[in-house]
Nucleic acid binder design. Structure first.
Lengths: 132, 132
DNA sequence: TTGAGTGTATCATATCACATAATACACTTG
DNA sequence: CAAGTGTATTATGTGATATGATACACTCAA
């Protein structure tokens, strides 16, 4: 429920999930939405840890996952930077979306829902948002 | 990866999730799909534990969640039975589907995907299944 | 060259969820 | 009464997570 700022980013952390997972996901979302520019430097592990009031190891864990995602590059002695390759971000977004969609459809089918059911509940869920 | 049988049911358990969660989900799915008849008795805690080669406490944990779902009724000294109310099963299915759809749409939007994106990836995911 | 700031690695410690094991209790039925 | 129900309790063990304290290799500006 509480907001914590780190540079231009804002984080919401709670106890429902591992901290490093929450940091990781919110960083992924910020990158995917272009809220951090390509090639931009993100706060250092120690800075981020202090801003979020979290242990540096926890931030480091999240940063290492980001690099495995291909979303960041770390330069020893310099810091961690968003990848300057739009293709890598795009690839991440597509793989993620495909994964989420597959999981959702498979999950619904495991409970016996047909494609028509799925479409119906999605329409209902969409109603809660502005159509873009 | 391994299949374990308990009465008419078949379970697949691994180490990727808590055991009680896997038992719970697969029971929910069996009930939602009508693979267990309304009012039917399900294996006792000890039976199920032996069939699945799992601790009775673990099975008990799953059974108690099932009752919280409104999917089963427990009669002390007799056993655990699927609810005989079709409405309760229907209600569970609807609430579950609504929840899954909302979570999915919200998750996709958190990464900046529009409704058109969502529809596109869903079509792609659907292609992996038979249209019913 | 030095010092401050990078990411990273390694200990130790603590907590929590999960699973198991062993018992025990209240209840129902044959 | 005996066997089979679900449930509760206590103890033990394990793994993931988080913290804290240090240390190391690297880069860059002063």
């Amino acid at each position: 429920m509480e907001e914590r700022r780190a540079g231009t980013l804002t984080f919401r952390l709670d106890l429902s999930q591992p901290l490093y997972e929450q940091i990781l996901q919110q960083m992924r979302q910020a990158i995917a939405k272009g809220e951090i520019g390509l090639g931009e430097k993100i706060p250092s592990v120690r800075e981020m840890a202090q801003s979020l009031r979290v242990n540096p190891n926890t931030v480091s864990h999240a940063y290492q996952e980001l690099e495995r995602d291909g979303l960041t590059e770390t330069r020893r002695g310099q810091g961690t930077f968003i990848t300057s390759s739009p293709e890598k971000v795009q690839r991440f977004r597509e793989e993620l979306a495909r994964h989420m969609a597959r999981e959702f459809v498979a999950g619904m089918r495991a409970y016996g829902f047909t494609w028509n059911d799925i479409a119906r509940f999605l329409q209902e869920a969409q109603g809660r948002h502005v159509h873009e």
